[in-house]
Design a binder for these strands. Structure first.
Length: 446
DNA sequence: TCTGGGGTCCTAGGACCC
DNA sequence: TCTGGGGTCCTAGGACCC
């Protein structure tokens, strides 16, 4: 059973509302606004080019060079000749790569060549054929992730995990945060920001960028304003000058689709979004998202820093080296599917979970995705049972074209043992033939 | 050979119950 | 036989994030 950290007090009050309207110039009362710190002081800390920077710790000779991290399961180990004592190490180049896969992270030198995370490696190779390609080493990144988070916790313990390379930190009650230093009311919180960065550097050798503001939305935006190795403090009075000129898509939660819809309304910047009539946003985006967009553009956000969340779902999926046909490639697909179920079961055991909703996901060669799921009466974490129900889900999916990806997912999780120890102990067992699973029959579809 | 893998949250419709 | 809301659960899809 996971240990639950103490709940943090939730502050419902948001920062003082900015006293500007989008069309106004700078506020004459700015000095007075800055002089009183907001109730909440929230930091967002983002590691700089995290995976790439961890690799540079290992291969310092790559410092300053264009390096990308990524690729599929199968490309040659790098460096190509680690054991070589004399002369420079040799590394695989992007141009040598063939296959599916995307860039997970690129060094700043590589980004300057136009490549970025999420980009397909083949496309990246066309842009930067000489960039060095390193494989992903998640174990190393997880180790450094634990190190930097532990270092931050020594300075400020109220931390919300946002993945392997970023966190929110509630600094509201950290001693010294509200101290005035040399007449600067922000001096105390700035010093804590610097302590955070130094602690991360000491623990990992890596740099990070920190934004400190009255809320998570503004902090996330701010940590990005001075990357890499930045420290940005931003208060409501700064919103018109520093935020409104930025593209609307910089707001966390405005993705490609929402951005396109905004552009169709003639809204391209955060300032234009702030100036848009609320009624127009409500009409285009509905009540929920419309109100949220309006508030976000004005820098208002009262979400608390959440130090613990129950897991909602666990899944495993894999993209094939080549697209597979449900009928012609049955012999290949079956074992892959079974293996995913076994891995999922093992993940459930490791996390101490069972679940009631078992689902499958397919991605066709045309990139369309279909999902099917079913809720079972008794929570389970048993590989054979997952395999059985997932197989039933599969039979309701059209299987008339090639598949690119297949996945298995467990949702409606119960944390803790909703299950006997015996069942848990067998969840890792590979499925055996005598368990008479239903045939993995991709040809039968409803 | 364009486009990985693991998540969260939201919406919308239907079943079912009171 | 028709007419109601409201609430919950389930399922499928989609946007978005790291």
């Amino acid at each position: 059973m996971p240990c639950r950290p103490p709940a943090l007090p939730v502050r419902l009050l948001s920062a003082p509302a900015p006293s500007h309207s989008p069309s106004q110039g700078p506020d004459r009362t700015e000095a007075a606004t800055v002089a009183s710190l907001p109730e909440r002081l929230i930091a967002h800390l983002d590691m700089d080019a995290f995976y790439a920077s961890v690799e540079l710790l290992r291969y310092p000779d790559l410092q300053g060079q264009p390096v990308v991290i990524g690729g599929g399961r199968r490309h040659p180990p790098q460096p190509l000749d680690e054991a070589q004592a004399d002369g420079p190490r040799r590394y695989a180049r992007l141009r040598d790569y063939a296959g599916r896969g995307v860039i997970t992270t690129a060094t700043y030198a590589a980004r300057a060549l136009g490549v970025h995370s999420g980009m397909g490696l083949m496309k990246a190779a066309a842009l930067a054929p000489d960039a060095i390609l390193l494989p992903v080493d998640f174990d190393a990144y997880r180790r450094h992730s634990r190190l930097f988070k532990a270092a931050v916790a020594e300075v400020a313990p109220v931390i919300e995990d946002r993945g392997i390379d970023e966190i929110y930190i509630d600094l509201s009650d950290v001693p010294g945060a509200r101290d005035t230093v040399d007449g600067d009311p922000m001096g105390g919180v700035r010093a804590i920001g610097q302590r955070l960065k130094q602690a991360v550097k000491d623990a990992t050798g890596l740099t990070c960028s920190v934004g400190i503001t009255p809320n998570k939305l503004l902090s996330k935006l701010s940590s990005d304003l001075d990357k890499p190795n930045g420290l940005t403090l931003l208060m409501p009075a700064d919103i018109p000058a520093r935020l409104w000129p930025l593209p609307a898509a910089r707001i966390n939660g405005i993705g490609p689709k929402a951005n396109e819809r905004l552009a169709a309304l003639g809204i391209h910047t955060i300032g234009e979004l702030a100036a848009a009539p609320l009624g127009q946003l409500l009409e285009e985006f509905g009540s929920n998202q419309g109100h949220w967009l309006h508030e976000a553009a004005h820098g208002r956000d009262d979400r608390p820093v959440v130090t613990w969340r129950e897991p909602k779902s666990i899944s495993r999926e894999t993209t094939f080296e080549r697209d597979l046909h449900p009928r012609d490639d049955r012999a290949t697909l079956g074992p892959i599917f079974t293996r995913l179920c076994e891995q999922l079961a093992a993940d459930l055991v490791r996390k101490g979970c069972t679940g009631r909703s078992i689902g499958v996901k397919l991605r066709y060669d045309d990139f369309r995705i279909v999902t099917r799921s079913i809720t079972v009466p008794q929570p389970t974490r048993d590989a054979a049972e997952i395999r059985l129900w997932a197989g039933r889900c599969l039979k309701t999916v059209p299987l008339d074209r090639r598949l690119r990806l297949i996945g298995v997912k467990m949702a409606s999780l119960l944390v803790g043992d909703g299950q006997s120890a015996d069942a848990a102990s067998h969840a890792n067992d590979p499925l055996t033939a005598h368990e008479s699973l239903p045939l993995f029959d991709f040809t039968e579809s409803a």
